[in-house]
Measured scan of single mutants.
Amino acid sequence: NNDALSPAIRRLLAEHNLDASAIKGTGVGGRLTREDVEKHLAKA
């Protein structure tokens, strides 16, 4: 659900052409954090 993404996370996802649903969020309520996105990028 993109409504739960902060603007910074949306921008980071867009810059790397990532789909938020492909990344498991570890923030409050399962929200994506910058660390989640960076860890996903490091794996790729």
Rank of each mutant, 00 (worst) to 15 (best):
N1C: 07
N1V: 13
N1E: 14
N1S: 14
N1W: 05
N2M: 12
N2E: 15
N2K: 12
N2S: 13
D3W: 02
D3K: 11
D3L: 07
D3M: 07
D3Q: 12
D3C: 06
A4P: 13
A4W: 15
A4R: 14
A4I: 14
A4G: 13
A4M: 14
L5Q: 07
L5I: 14
L5F: 05
L5N: 05
L5W: 04
L5T: 06
S6K: 04
S6R: 04
S6G: 07
S6A: 09
P7H: 11
P7F: 05
P7A: 13
P7D: 15
P7Y: 05
P7C: 12
A8K: 08
A8R: 13
A8V: 10
A8Y: 14
I9S: 02
I9K: 02
I9V: 10
I9D: 04
I9F: 06
I9N: 03
I9R: 02
I9Q: 03
I9W: 07
I9G: 01
I9E: 03
R10Q: 09
R10I: 15
R10T: 07
R10A: 08
R10L: 11
R10N: 05
R10M: 07
R11N: 12
R11K: 12
R11G: 07
R11Y: 07
L12F: 06
L12V: 06
L12Y: 06
L12N: 03
L13T: 00
L13R: 00
L13S: 00
L13N: 00
A14T: 11
A14V: 07
A14Q: 12
E15P: 01
E15R: 15
E15K: 15
E15N: 09
E15A: 15
E15F: 15
E15S: 13
E15L: 15
E15V: 14
E15M: 15
H16Y: 11
H16M: 06
H16I: 03
H16E: 03
H16G: 03
H16V: 03
H16R: 03
H16Q: 03
H16T: 02
N17H: 10
N17I: 03
N17Q: 09
N17E: 07
N17G: 15
N17T: 04
N17A: 07
L18R: 00
L18E: 03
L18K: 01
L18N: 01
L18M: 07
L18A: 04
L18P: 00
D19P: 07
D19Y: 05
D19Q: 11
D19M: 10
D19V: 11
D19K: 10
A20E: 09
A20H: 06
A20Q: 08
A20W: 08
A20N: 03
A20V: 11
A20F: 07
S21N: 11
S21D: 09
S21A: 12
S21H: 07
S21E: 08
S21G: 10
A22L: 14
A22N: 11
A22P: 02
A22S: 14
A22R: 10
A22V: 13
A22Y: 09
A22T: 13
A22F: 10
I23K: 00
I23V: 08
I23Q: 01
I23S: 00
I23M: 08
I23N: 00
I23L: 10
I23H: 00
K24M: 12
K24Q: 12
K24T: 11
G25N: 02
G25A: 09
G25M: 03
G25S: 05
G25E: 01
G25H: 06
G25F: 01
T26I: 03
T26Y: 02
T26F: 02
G27V: 02
G27M: 02
G27T: 02
G27H: 02
V28F: 11
V28W: 09
V28G: 07
V28L: 13
V28P: 15
V28I: 13
G29E: 07
G29R: 08
G29S: 08
G29V: 04
G29D: 10
G29Y: 04
G29T: 05
G29Q: 08
G30L: 01
G30E: 04
G30A: 05
G30M: 03
G30S: 05
G30K: 04
G30W: 00
G30V: 01
G30R: 04
R31E: 08
R31K: 13
R31D: 04
R31F: 08
L32P: 04
L32N: 00
L32V: 10
L32D: 00
L32S: 00
T33C: 03
T33A: 02
T33K: 05
R34Q: 12
R34L: 15
R34W: 15
R34H: 09
R34G: 05
E35H: 10
E35M: 12
E35V: 09
E35Q: 13
D36R: 01
D36H: 01
D36Q: 01
D36Y: 01
D36I: 01
V37S: 00
V37D: 00
V37A: 04
V37L: 07
V37F: 03
V37I: 15
E38M: 15
E38L: 15
E38D: 08
E38P: 00
E38N: 07
E38H: 10
E38S: 08
E38W: 15
E38G: 05
E38V: 14
K39G: 09
K39I: 10
K39W: 12
K39S: 11
K39A: 12
K39C: 05
L41S: 02
L41R: 01
L41A: 05
L41C: 04
L41E: 01
L41N: 01
L41W: 04
A42L: 13
A42M: 13
A42D: 08
A42S: 11
A42E: 13
A42Y: 12
A42R: 13
A42K: 13
A42V: 10
A42P: 04
A42W: 09
K43T: 12
K43V: 10
K43I: 13
K43D: 10
K43H: 11
K43F: 13
K43E: 11
K43M: 14
K43G: 11
K43Q: 14
K43N: 13
A44P: 10
A44E: 11
A44V: 15
A44M: 15
A44S: 13
A44N: 13
